[in-house]
Structures are given as C-alpha cells and as structure tokens.
Simulated scan of single mutants.
Amino acid sequence: MIIVGLTGGIGSGKTTVANVFKALGVPIYIADEEAKRLMNTSKVIKRKLIALFGEEAYLDGKLNKSFLAKVIYNDRSHLEQMNAIVHPKVARHFKKWVLKQQNSPYVIKEVAILFENDGHKACDYVITVTAPKELKIKRLLNREENSIKRIEAIMRNQWDDNERVPLSDFVIENIDLENTKEQVLKIHKEITQKIL
C-alpha cells in the first residue's frame, strides 16, 4: 500500500486539502483525530497523562484540552513527553487501518507534525500544505478558543514551511479553494500514474 503523508503548519488548511482528496475517493487517516480519540478512550494513555500532568489533565473523565494546550505549547519537553505516550498507539492503529484499505491505490495520512517526529520516513510520498502566515493566523482566529499568543506558541513548536518544503515531494499552496482543488487533482493523477 502506498502511503502519502499530508502535513503543514497549523492554519495551512490540511483538512481542506484532505477533504478534496477524500472527494476523489482517497481514504484519509487524520492522525490528530485518532490521537484525541485515544486520549479520551485509552485507560493506559489516561493513566500516563494524569501521572505526567496531574488530575487537571481530565475534567469529568474527558480530556481537558485547554489546560493541556497551555502546558504543552509553553514547554517543549512536556509536548515531547505527551507525544511519546500517544504517538506509538496512533501508529499501531494506523497500521491496522491501512490493512482495511486494500481497494485503494493509495491512502493519505494527515499529520500536523510529520517531519518533527520522523513520520515522513514511513511515507512513500509527502505533500506539504502551505499558506502565508497572516492567512494562517486569520483562519485560526476564526476558530474557537484561539488567541494570537496561543497560535504563535503552537507555531513555534512546529517546523516552518522553509524546513518542510525541501523534504516534500509535492507542495500545495492553499490560498484559493478552486486553485487548491486543481493542485490536488494534478497530484492525485501524478501519484496514481506512478503506482499503476
């Protein structure tokens, strides 16, 4: 199975791009969604996160996202410790998921921090989604619970586009939706032709 990593900084529009691929019939695995699901359902992960961050990590049995965001985005070592707990389980889940996608020529794994965790090494191709920083911030401010301070803290913990792009097989500049759709279609054709 051909695995295509899809990455990009916060606010670049990875989900928008993933949805365009999904409309073309490509199976999409969103690693962040799976990570959040596991953090809420896995007893082992819950226990480890409470041991690491204290009881405040969960409110009424649910992940306390705003508390965790404050802690991890202001302390890189906490972010790395949390990733070390969650990412191996996500990786195992992804392997099982891939086995169920045998009817598709390739799958996309959407991961915010693909390069930061060497995840690109397990991909056959990597697509990086880019957008100007001002546009990313504007998009993010339209989402709930976001402040410039929080957005910049998250951005500091992610690679810059200048670091991602040279290591990518494809780059999608996501500014205008119609143009983004055209770029996706072109990449989809190219990957499909390489496989067949």
Rank of each mutant, 00 (worst) to 15 (best):
I2S: 02
K65E: 15
N157E: 08
V26C: 02
I50F: 07
R47C: 11
K100F: 08
N74D: 08
T7W: 01
L99M: 11
V129P: 04
F94D: 05
M82C: 07
L49R: 02
G54M: 11
I191F: 02
M155N: 01
E33G: 09
I2E: 02
I113S: 00
L99Y: 11
H78P: 04
F21S: 02
D161V: 14
V44K: 14
E152L: 14
I30L: 04
I137W: 00
N162K: 15
G8R: 09
P166K: 02
C123E: 12
V71T: 13
E56N: 15
K194H: 09
K186V: 08
D124G: 08
E80L: 15
V111R: 01
V171G: 00
T128K: 04
P88D: 08
K89N: 12
S104W: 14
P27I: 08
F170D: 00
A35Y: 02
N146M: 15
R156E: 11
V86P: 04
M155Y: 06
S77K: 15
A112W: 07
N74K: 11
N83G: 10
Y106T: 07
A57T: 09
Y29K: 05
Y29S: 02
I148R: 12
N40W: 09
G8W: 05
I85A: 04
S12K: 09
E134R: 12
W159P: 00
N19Q: 13
N157W: 06
M1I: 11
Y58L: 06
E34W: 10
I30Q: 07
T16S: 06
F67P: 03
N83P: 10
V20S: 00
R150I: 14
H120V: 06
F53G: 05
L177Q: 13
I137N: 03
I154F: 04
K149C: 03
I108P: 01
I175T: 14
L63R: 09
D160I: 13
A18P: 02
I175D: 03
F170H: 02
V71F: 09
A91P: 05
D118S: 15
L167S: 01
L135E: 06
E134M: 06
D124S: 06
H87V: 10
L114M: 03
E56K: 15
K95Y: 08
I137Y: 03
Q102P: 06
F21T: 00
A112M: 08
E116I: 09
K100S: 01
I72W: 08
V20L: 11
A51M: 14
E80S: 14
A84F: 10
E190T: 15
K149M: 11
A51F: 12
R139P: 03
V20P: 01
N179H: 13
A91D: 13
F53K: 06
F53R: 00
R37H: 13
R164N: 01
L196F: 14
L59K: 15
Q158F: 04
V107E: 01
L114G: 00
N74W: 10
Q81Y: 10
R164P: 01
I195H: 08
K36P: 05
N162G: 11
I108V: 06
Y29F: 07
K100Q: 09
P105L: 06
V98A: 07
D161P: 07
D169Y: 06
K65S: 10
